[in-house]
Design a binder for these strands. Structure first.
Lengths: 202, 202
DNA sequence: TTCATTTAGTACCACTCGGTATTTTAATTT
DNA sequence: AAATTAAAATACCGAGTGGTACTAAATGAA
């Protein structure tokens, strides 16, 4: 999946590595708070000139949207696939907890889910990014809902609760976990909280 | 509690209204995201010159700390007093939910708890403010813990859960509620989530 | 009146921000 | 070789940031 679509046309050959810039930007937005990270800093970290970055992503909004799409593909999609598989409900729930509380190893800085972080600062982001956030949110809720519905038919989810609300509740608790991790709360603590919060679903 | 401590000494009489500035600043930090609100804007909104503000609060850090202290006195303290009273556990829990999900009426902009908002952006704030946040956090957890302990001796809290962890769990769920409200989630939804999350405590 | 004291506010500082006009450079086509 | 095309980067733009010299003004004390 090389994003430098094969197009050896005419002029000066392109040296800007789109994937590399996206990697750096994703990592940066992830670790630092989105609102406190400038384009200048991303240029500095990725070794790209500012006009180069603007040529590739139009503006800050475009970069953020691209980062968000990349995050969806690389991080969120595997989880959604897991939910789509035929793993028993309780096991899938455990997987979800493991995923949510697994700190991305490298570095000491705080973490959590980039999507949720961006969703929290939604108001201050560009329109394209906002639209992408809204899309991902809706999509995520649909995944959760379908998962719960399937689990109900399989008899693995028997609590008296609408699938719609169950999805909202799961989303809320995962968001909470992300926020706490970002704040620096110990992953084991977050895990225990999630376990208790999800115990109402069994 | 007039903060203009009676000191009619010598020089030019002070016209700066500390309480008014704090009111404006608290409101501003509360509604807008803290990180996106400048000192200049606060000066503009409160009708105070910048040097005037610096004379009163030293710097941005000092202002934020002062705002946080004011927020504790005006908003948090009443809740803590309620927890210290002899209200039955379940009733106190309901009060807590009502408090957490009551949007502060005026205006359409997002809300939530200012303390929790500041705690989430803790890393990017000044040292004084950070210290105040840490103090309030610790204090809050102690309140929750004592409340649970008292409820245990009264036989109103019988779940097998350490008071320490219960306090952490309650704090986490309230934080979650605040974050969701700030994001724009409907208060009724947030309330329902809190009800479910707290149902494990009964 | 004169002087010390304290506050008020204008006008500035260096710096960073998102974004761009402009020119240079490296390739292909004619 | 010359013309064309596209990407490179320097150097800039106006606006906004946190913070501060500095001067004017208002009071009580001498």
């Amino acid at each position: 999946m090389n994003s430098n679509t094969v197009k050896p046309v005419r002029g000066r050959p392109k040296t800007l590595d789109r994937d590399h810039v996206l990697d750096v930007a994703m990592d940066s937005y992830w670790k630092d708070n989105i609102g406190n990270l400038s384009l200048n800093e991303i240029c500095r970290r990725s070794g790209v000139s500012k006009p180069g970055l603007y040529r590739e992503f139009s503006n800050e909004d475009g970069l953020m949207k691209a980062v968000l799409i990349r995050y969806q593909e690389q991080v969120l999609e595997p989880v959604q696939q897991m939910l789509n598989s035929d793993v028993p409900f309780k096991e899938a729930l455990d997987n979800l907890i493991s995923f949510a509380t697994s700190v991305s190893c490298h570095d000491e800085s705080p973490n959590g889910c980039l999507f949720i972080k961006m969703r929290e600062s939604r108001v201050h982001l560009g329109k394209e990014t906002q639209a992408q956030i809204d899309f991902l949110e809706k999509q995520g809720l649909v995944f959760f809902k379908k998962w719960v519905e399937r689990s109900k038919t399989k008899g693995e989810f028997s609590v008296d609760m609408s699938s719609e609300f169950a999805a909202t509740y799961i989303d809320a608790q995962l968001s909470n976990a992300s926020t706490q991790l970002a704040r620096g709360v110990a992953p084991e603590t977050v895990k225990k909280i999630l376990l208790v919060a999800f115990s109402v679903l069994e």
